[in-house]
Amino acid sequence: MTARKRPHRLTARMRLTLSYTLFAVTAGLLSLAVVYVGMRYVPNYPLTSSNPRYRSDAPSRQEILHSLLTASGYALALLTAVGLVGGWLIAGRVLRPLQDITRAAHRAASGALEHRIALAGPRDEFTDLSDAFDEMLARLQRSFEAQQRFAANASHELRTPLAITHTLLQVAAADPAGQDWRLLVTRLQDTNRRAIEISEALLQLADLGNAPPDLAPTDLATATGEALAAVRDEAEAVGITLTADLRPAPATGNAVLLRQAAVNLLHNALRHNLPAGAGGRVTVATGADPERPGRVHLTVANTGPQLTADAVATFTEPFLRGRGRTAETDPSRRGHGLGLAIVAAVAEAHHGELHLTPESSGGLRVTLSLPGPVEE
């Protein structure tokens, strides 16, 4: 995008200098005008002494006014010069922080987002602007780095199933007679399904970031109940006990997206739990948010390994799994690392909040808090 052409004007420093000078000269003119008006009350006749033998040399009003005008001209000329020089220096000192901000903006435009102005001095309009600009740079840097990581991780995640498919087909082509074609087809289908899931999740993330969803009165408990029905078979297969307390949770939202968010939370709770057969549990609850009046919540808590607050803070980053960036070896418990990222995007699209808290006994508690229904 090319820079917009702007008409040439005086610089801000020059405009401030001229403004200071004009103010000083105007103030001088007003002061002289007051003196000049006051001189009208000076007698306009020759002043004489009471003793006729002494001759008075006192000037007349006309002579005083003439001398006053001459001195005023020199004073105004000097005042103009002082105003220009002093105004130029003062304007430069006042505008110096803006020059620092401008240089930082040019560096940011060239891609150097790590620079900070860190303007020193007491709090004023310039330090407020500097702090706001530094905060904007920090957010831009975090967003840019997250975008870079997202692009790299998305490329890696999509390249992996394609590489697996390519390898399987190469092996099959090299030794057609020695292949278990049923097993090969099963592996290809599993790999293809995974690539489709990743692509659909990426498209969903992109849609949530580009356009606001259609919102209507709905019940978060209903969406959660449908999500529970969709994951019960998976929970039974790995021996995890599901416990639900679904109380009415009326909200204004998109029923499809809320169901998907609930499914993602349940999948995350099941797949990052205790090993199969170790007595893992998942507890699900909906209802009025006890800590935020006027809001409703969905809470999903599971058993699992001990987690730190620093690690939990990164779980909504795309492609970050519970074990880091290494996928589970068990295909039935393998995710693509986009589940919580999608839930966070759904929460943001609904003006809600997503809170992740590590449990003291191990596992994770995730709370999705949404505004209640809008009263008309």
Rank of each mutant, 00 (worst) to 15 (best):
R139K: 06
F150Q: 02
H156S: 09
A206V: 15
S130A: 15
A163P: 02
A118D: 12
F133T: 13
T127L: 12
L119I: 14
I198M: 10
A146V: 07
N210Q: 12
S155F: 07
L215M: 07
L168A: 08
R159E: 04
E200H: 07
L119C: 10
M136F: 12
V171S: 12
L208G: 01
L208P: 00
Q141P: 04
H166V: 06
P212W: 05
E200D: 13
R194M: 03
A195D: 03
F133D: 07
P122T: 15
S199Y: 07
Q170W: 04
Q204W: 05
N153M: 15
N210K: 04
A154M: 09
P213D: 04
L162D: 01
S155Q: 13
R187A: 09
A154N: 06
P176W: 02
V185S: 07
L169K: 03
L168M: 14
D180R: 08
P212F: 05
R123K: 13
V171M: 12
D124E: 10
T127R: 11
D190N: 02
Q141N: 08
G178H: 07
L137K: 09
A120R: 08
F133N: 06
D134W: 13
L129D: 03
E145Q: 15
D214F: 09
H156N: 11
L162N: 01
T191G: 00
E197I: 10
T160A: 13
P176L: 02
A206M: 15
L169F: 06
L188D: 02
R149D: 09
F133P: 02
A211E: 11
S199H: 07
I198V: 14
I196N: 05
D190Y: 00
P122L: 14
V185W: 01
A151V: 15
Q148F: 03
R139C: 04
A206F: 13
Q147R: 15
L168T: 10
F126S: 01
T191M: 00
D180P: 01
E125D: 12
Q141E: 14
T165E: 01
V171W: 00
H156L: 10
D131H: 08
L168W: 11
A146S: 15
D175I: 14
F144H: 12
N153L: 15
N210L: 02
L140G: 06
R149E: 07
E200S: 08
L215Q: 04
S130R: 14
P212E: 10
T165R: 02
L158V: 14
T165N: 03
Q148T: 10
